[in-house]
C-alpha cells in the first residue's frame, strides 16, 4: 500500500530531511512512525500525499508511483489517502457536517450518498449529535474527531495521522488510537506519526523509527 524505495529528500538549501529510506506497509497494516522532532516524520508524511516530492528514490502509494504523478493527478492520489492533521485543518466558517462532507463533495458524490456517509462517519467517531455545530463550539478532542471523520468519510485505503494525540490527555489519546485501530480492523492501512512512545507500546504495532532522516528500525533494508 505504501512503499518507499531508497527515498531521500533534500530541501533547497542542502538540508537532508530523509536519506535512503526503505520500507513497505502492506495493505491492512498499522504502524507507528516515531523519532525526535526534525527526524523527518513530517517530511515522510508529506511525500505520501505529494505535498513534497522525493529528491531521490521512489514512493508508491496504492500502487501508484508518485514520481510519475503529474500536478493534475495529485488530487486523485490524495483522495486515496485520508489524513488527520495535528492542527485539524478544519474550516471554521462551516459546520461539522459540511467539514466532514468536503471530501465527498469534491469527489462528486450525490447529496444523498453524502448525507448517509457523513452521518455514518460522525457516529463512528461519536459525534452523531454535533453535525450542526461550528468547530469553535467543540472541544479540542472533538475537533480532532471531526478531522478523523473527514479523513475516513470516503473510505480511503490508506489513513495517515500526524501527531493525532498531540494536544489530548492520555484517556482521550487512547480513545483516538482505538478508533484508528478499528479502522485498521476493517482493512485500512494506517500510519501514525507520534511522539507518544507510551501509547505506541500500549498498541503493540509495528514501529518505524526515524533518526536524523534515516530509518533506524522497522524498515526493510
Amino acid at each position: 500500500m505504501i512503499r518507499f524505495d531508497d527515498v531521500s529528500k533534500r530541501y533547497p538549501g542542502g538540508n537532508d530531511a530523509l536519506s535512503r529510506v526503505n520500507f513497505e506497509l502492506a495493505g491492512g497494516e498499522m504502524a507507528f512512525l516515531t523519532g525526535h522532532s526534525g527526524a523527518g516524520k513530517s517530511t515522510l508524511m508529506k511525500l505520501i500525499i505529494v505535498m513534497e516530492r522525493a529528491s531521490r528514490g521512489q514512493v508508491f502509494v496504492n500502487g501508484v508511483n508518485l514520481n510519475r504523478v503529474s500536478r493534475g493527478q495529485i488530487p486523485l492520489v490524495r483522495r486515496g489517502v485520508g489524513v488527520v492533521f495535528q492542527n485539524h485543518q478544519l474550516l471554521f466558517d462551516r459546520n461539522v457536517y459540511d467539514n466532514v462532507a468536503l471530501p465527498l463533495t469534491i469527489a462528486g458524490y450525490s447529496p444523498r450518498d453524502v448525507g448517509r456517509r457523513v452521518r455514518a462517519a460522525l457516529s463512528k467517531v461519536g459525534l452523531g449529535d454535533k453535525e450542526k455545530k461550528l468547530p469553535v463550539q467543540l472541544s479540542g478532542g472533538e475537533q480532532q474527531r471531526v478531522g478523523i471523520a473527514r479523513a475516513v468519510v470516503n473510505k480511503p485505503p490508506v489513513l495517515l495521522a500526524d501527531e493525532p494525540t498531540g494536544n489530548l490527555d492520555p484517556a482521550l489519546s487512547l480513545e483516538v488510537m482505538n478508533l484508528f485501530s478499528q479502522f485498521n480492523q476493517v482493512g485500512v492501512t494506517v500510519l501514525i506519526a507520534t511522539h507518544d512512545l507510551e501509547l505506541v507500546k500500549t498498541m503493540g504495532c509495528r514501529e518505524l523509527i526515524l533518526r536524523d532522516g534515516s530509518l533506524v528500525a522497522g524498515g526493510d533494508l
Binding site: 502492506a26 491492512g28 462528486g108 458524490y109 450518498d113 470516503n154 473510505k155 485505503p157 476493517v186
Partner: peptide
C-alpha cells in the same frame, strides 16, 4: 489483504 470497507467507492458517470 483485508479489503472490506477499504475500497475506493466508485459512483456511476451519471451520478457524477
Amino acid at each position: 489483504m483485508k479489503t472490506t470497507g477499504a475500497t475506493v467507492a466508485i459512483t456511476g458517470t451519471r451520478d457524477r
